[in-house]
Amino acid sequence: MRIRISHETTHRYAPPARMLIQNLRLTPHGFDSQYLLFWRVALDIDSAIKTSEDAHGNVVSTFSHHGAPIERLTVTARGEVETSDSAGVIRGTAERLPTDMYLRDSPLAHVNGALRAFAIESAGGAQDPLDALHRLMAELHRVMSFDPYQTDDPDSAAEAFALRRGRARDFANIFIACARALGAPARFVTGYRAFEEPDGEAGAHAWAEAHVPRLGWVAFDPTVCICADPGYVRVVVGFDARDASFASAAHGMSDDTIESVIRVEQARFQTQS
């Protein structure tokens, strides 16, 4: 599937910001089932973007500004990728960290007693790790209700699980916490999702990856209860929602009002094979 993405973020600073610095993780890597046709990140202020990689190997675009106050800033990421079906198995990524590091505890995916009990019960004694993770995903999908406008803003997996309600990021954090409790290295993915059918609500999305012996990393989306299909564009990975965000930013003492416009479309002009 060929997917075109435009992700525009507008910041309004009050009072106008004298200092700005952002680490943007808006550029995906290519791998076996995701090919980058083109990609570009741009700013509407006069500032150079420097590119590096973070601990997980994500592409980080950094820019900073000091001096003249800035009232409004727009960051634009545009690009096109071609994806193919791999049954959710992610191959061909450059891994910077030892796989077992994704077993470590992380602040938003901390395992408490309730999550541990839920994980073990969901897996139902499945011997095969892949089977156990599928059961976990199904059970999680069953007990949690999806609420994209969750306003209580539960931050951690444990809090969202206690409410049995959450956004995609909460589903992913919970899945990760539980997968780790079951002994599977797991991580958070931030990206985009497109649909074959025209009326699907496309946009930014969050899901999880768990490491399965012999298969490698497999993408699970507990919000939808499927393994990632070609509609998924994988951009950032991290231990949990905290370090797998599209951006981390600082803007001095100013308040920042953020408005995002994300368009994810199938590039239809191209003849499908």
């Binding site: 973070d54 601990a55 077992d100 590091m101 077993l103 470590r104 505890d105």
Partner: peptide, 14 residues
């Protein structure tokens, strides 16, 4: 695991 799961082992420095 004593290293890899140690909270003070910083992935950023790997």
């Amino acid at each position: 695991e004593l290293i890899l799961r140690n909270p003070f082992y910083r992935p950023e420095m790997i």
